[in-house]
């Protein structure tokens, strides 16, 4: 490409943006609105995933040890559980520690109760699993191990939690996919309009011997700039919106909602929205020009 062609392409890109400024503003507006909606869903989904992960990390199996089990059996059980491929980590909790926990939880209600002499609580192994969703399967397996009295993992609650978070994530993904398709449709449609407005110019270029790529470049760069602007604007808006939400959550004492920090969310959104916006702009330009280049 010669220097004059390079400058021509750059100058034409900005001239094109200026000449068709209203159409460009409309196209960029479409990208902004679509990516803003997409961003809001992504933001919600990211936080739901984060909260779910946090909750999942707290899901564990408690294997209560039979009171007749001797030290050897206890050690064997500990080794067997640690060696299991589905187990991420285990922790032994003696019956005394259980009693202490109960004391702490119930406070004065256990006043006068002699824990050392008459402790009915069983010692246990508290187990974190590699895959939180596998707790039910693992729990039923651990129940069969020698020396195990009972196994508890929050039966019923955990299954419900996983079912609900699964549905929420699926709905979020479906919405994001739907919005992405809508964005592609709207953007390629609006860019097609800008290309149509300049079809005379394109046909002249074809007749005087311009190559297809020479004709495409200014449109591709325009699409790229519009897509980039269309991605950055919602990103900035979402950053401030999210900051505001974080402040509102902390002001309303909703600390149990463990939300992601604003910069983490912004970086994560930028990773998707910027390539998506610019990609949509470029692809929209390339695809909408096809018909006009066949001269």
């Amino acid at each position: 490409m010669s220097i004059s062609s390079f400058f021509y392409i750059i100058v034409e890109t900005f001239k094109g943006l200026y000449r068709n400024r209203w159409m460009c503003i409309t196209s960029t507006g479409v990208v902004v609105v679509t990516l803003l909606m997409l961003g809001v869903f992504m933001l919600v989904n990211l936080n739901i995933s984060h909260i779910t992960e946090t909750v999942k990390e707290q899901v564990e199996i408690v294997v209560y040890i039979d009171e007749t089990a001797d030290q050897e059996m206890l050690d064997e059980l500990g080794q067997k559980l640690s060696a299991h491929s589905g187990v991420a980590g285990i922790r032994y909790v003696s019956s005394e520690e259980h009693m202490n926990r109960l004391h702490r939880q119930l406070g004065g209600m256990l006043e006068g109760y002699d824990a050392e002499l008459d402790n009915p609580l069983l010692a246990s192994y508290e187990i974190r699993t590699v895959v939180p969703e596998s707790v039910a399967v693992l729990a039923s397996e651990f129940e069969t191990y020698p020396g195990v009295s009972t196994v508890f993992y929050g039966q019923g609650y955990v299954e419900n939690l996983f079912a609900v978070t699964g549905v929420v994530q699926m709905v979020g993904l479906a919405l994001m996919a739907g919005l992405s398709i809508t964005a592609v449709f709207l953007i390629s449609h609006t860019i097609k309009l800008t290309v149509m407005m300049r079809k005379r110019e394109i046909s002249i270029m074809k007749y005087v011997g311009a190559t297809n790529w020479f004709i495409r470049w200014p449109f591709v760069l325009e699409g790229l700039l519009m897509g980039f602007a269309g991605a950055v604007m919602p990103l900035v808006a979402l950053y401030y919106l999210y900051q505001f939400s974080l402040e509102w959550v902390s002001a309303n004492n909703l600390a149990f909602l463990t939300l992601l920090p604003a910069w983490v969310v912004t970086v994560e959104l930028a990773r998707y929205l910027v390539p998506l916006g610019t990609g949509l702009g470029v692809l929209g330009s390339v695809f909408s020009m096809g018909r006009f280049l066949r001269v």
Binding site: I204, G209, F214, I215
Partner: peptide, 9 residues
Amino acid sequence: FAMVVIGVS
């Protein structure tokens, strides 16, 4: 325009 699009200086 006719010259620019074919890369004339």
